[in-house]
Design a protein around this nucleic acid. Structure first.
Lengths: 190, 190
DNA sequence: CTCGAAGTACTACTAATAGAAGTATTCGAC
DNA sequence: GTCGAATACTTCTATTAGTAGTACTTCGAG
């Protein structure tokens, strides 16, 4: 006989594993802290979940025994809750990392969709959208590089650094791709 | 005074525009047909929505007057509904393509996340996951190329072809990126 | 000629995600 | 010193996405 909780074991959404993964890299964090980590690191390769989602996942993770929490009152009025990964949590995460099927990459590329609909668009507008995308990608690339600089000397961070390097290449090719697209869209209108 | 419908104008989720976009490329389609299009073309750059979502969007689009439908009974028992884009629908779509802000690319890269959690993983398993990702990407690349071959001669398809070319380059660099990642992860274990 | 698998068409239910709102605190400019 | 903006922390609600199910059909293998 399998309990309801058992049925859900290892069937967390990727977001849940991401939250647990953040916790596996740190000591003890509040939901808010997890969000900051997610924004600054995970977001480069996996969209950062909303705060409300993170709180929800933390509650679920606690129910499963993968994390424990304690109230950390700052003063009479404010009250935060700090979460910490447990050994079963670490074990479940390890199992997921090693054995879960690689589920397909989710890509929602707004610019590509707009170009796909180019028969309805203005040539110049399309080029303009692409240029904005270039700017945005350059910004992301800059952030990745900053992050890389900050973490590359710490030996304990070897895997995160490997991923950051991957991210750097990813955003660099995104840039190249968009520039080639711009060429395909025709030379500059002015 | 602004009606409820007006408020929602131009505030469709991207999926809604994608459905309308498919319809803008065709004459008259059932929800099921839209799904097939989405799976075979849109999916390369924008995750294909579930059927249930498509049916929902079609109903909403009809409420907004962006599409019209007619029942097309095939026999006594079966009954399908065919949708067609209207002029206001085409206009709204044109407006969205030209003027909506480019919203940020959504990327959920499962492999990158697993590598990020590499401190918990088995070196060999990680390489194995990466190799599976390579295989998957090769498959996708093959599909893109097939699709490209099928559509490249038709002049009317110039924008879709531009996007397919972009997709080809995208999956090619995804492949290169994963191979470099594999190198970073260390040479083959055997 | 029939049985199973794949294809067509659609709906109902459930899970995941985004967004808005609420409350308190600190920091910096005027 | 106070006003507004940014930061810390959390919950609630509404939307969006995904799963599973029904039901009937066509096609191909044996």
């Amino acid at each position: 006989m399998v309990s309801r909780v058992d049925e859900r074991r290892d069937r967390l959404p990727a977001t849940g594993w991401a939250v647990l993964g953040v916790l596996s890299h740190a000591e003890e964090l509040s939901g808010y802290d997890v969000k900051k980590w997610a924004d600054h690191v995970v977001a480069f390769f996996y969209v950062s979940p909303a705060l409300s989602q993170i709180y929800g996942e933390l509650r679920r993770l606690e129910e499963l025994g993968y994390v424990v929490s304690r109230a950390a009152p700052q003063d009479e009025l404010r009250n935060k809750r700090l979460y910490r990964i447990t050994e079963p949590g670490r074990e479940a995460l390890r199992h997921w990392v090693n054995h879960a099927p690689v589920d397909p990459t989710v890509l929602k590329h707004n610019l590509a969709m707009r170009v796909w609909l180019g028969h309805l668009a203005d040539q110049d507008r399309l080029r303009d959208l692409a240029e904005r995308h270039v700017a945005e990608t350059e910004r992301a690339l800059g952030e990745v590089r900053t992050s890389l600089l900050r973490s590359q000397d710490r030996p304990a961070w070897s895997y995160p650094v490997t991923v950051l390097r991957w991210c750097e290449r990813y955003y660099r090719s995104e840039l190249a791709l968009t520039r080639e697209l711009l060429t395909d869209l025709g030379e500059a209108p002015n």
